[in-house]
Design a protein around this nucleic acid. Structure first.
Lengths: 134, 134
DNA sequence: TAAATTACCTATTGACATAGTAGGTAAATA
DNA sequence: TATTTACCTACTATGTCAATAGGTAATTTA
């Protein structure tokens, strides 16, 4: 299941895109609009900054801002950053130890196919696509 | 992420299908072949019996058996039983409290679409499909 | 009828993730 | 200098996951 980390991150990005005036947007405003605990969002946006999704500026007039146009943010990349991985089973995770049964495993192709489906779906959507629907 | 409960359940069903002679198959044999703790499998097959996927028989000559031909087991139904839900986000879970933001939520359509994709994928596959590949 | 085999039952555990909260410091602006 | 804002470390309650432990009940075979 996709956790709040990934889901809130996308909502933050959408909020930044929709209120983009060129100026920095304070997290307080985002938290109020999105009705999410500001303290919890702090943890999430910190990782978003570290991952290069947004930039932050301290002090009065500070806040956060997108670094690219919305069309250049794929949902897949955002989720992968925030959730650690987009993998749907443990044996297909990025740094997972290779399963000794992989060669004979009759279920692996199923998970691999679903993984591909998931990957293609989320990398085929951008922040811009979500905006159009709003 | 799909947990061992769902993944092991499918492997148990596959094992039962492949070694089906009409007789009951002891869990001990399945656990050895699949290299999964028998004690842990006990918990899993218990739920599979409760969910009507298989039947068990006690005593010597006992074990477990499928109740239908493999083609009539959809992977979706198995996973839904074992994982509790196939939902990919909390707000789309079966008994979830309705989200007060659902009407205005810009991300909900994304999750709903992915949910549909997931549902269709797993309900479109049966145990029989996995056997053919082996 | 006794022994063996098997399912079936309740309870417990260690490790980890999730979704936060609490209380600060540093930086920038007016 | 006061205010605003990001940024930092630490803590916590709750729950899930993946088992393990130690039994009882049912059934067959010798």
């Amino acid at each position: 299941m996709i956790s709040t980390r990934g889901r809130y991150a996308i909502r933050v990005l959408l909020d930044l895109a929709e209120h983009n005036t060129g100026a920095f947007i304070p997290l307080k405003d985002i938290a109020e609009r999105q009705d999410i605990s500001k303290k919890y969002l702090e943890i999430i946006v910190k990782d978003m900054v570290a991952g290069g999704l947004i930039v932050g500026a301290s002090g009065k007039g500070g806040g956060y801002r997108l670094v690219r146009p919305p069309e250049e943010y794929t949902i897949g990349a955002v989720l992968e950053l925030m959730e650690g991985s987009l993998a749907t089973v443990a044996c297909l995770m990025d740094g997972a130890a290779p399963c000794p049964r992989a060669g004979e495993c009759e279920t692996l192709p199923l998970w691999a196919e679903y993984d591909r489906l998931t990957h293609d779906f989320f990398y085929g959507k951008t922040l811009g696509d979500l905006l159009k629907k709003g």
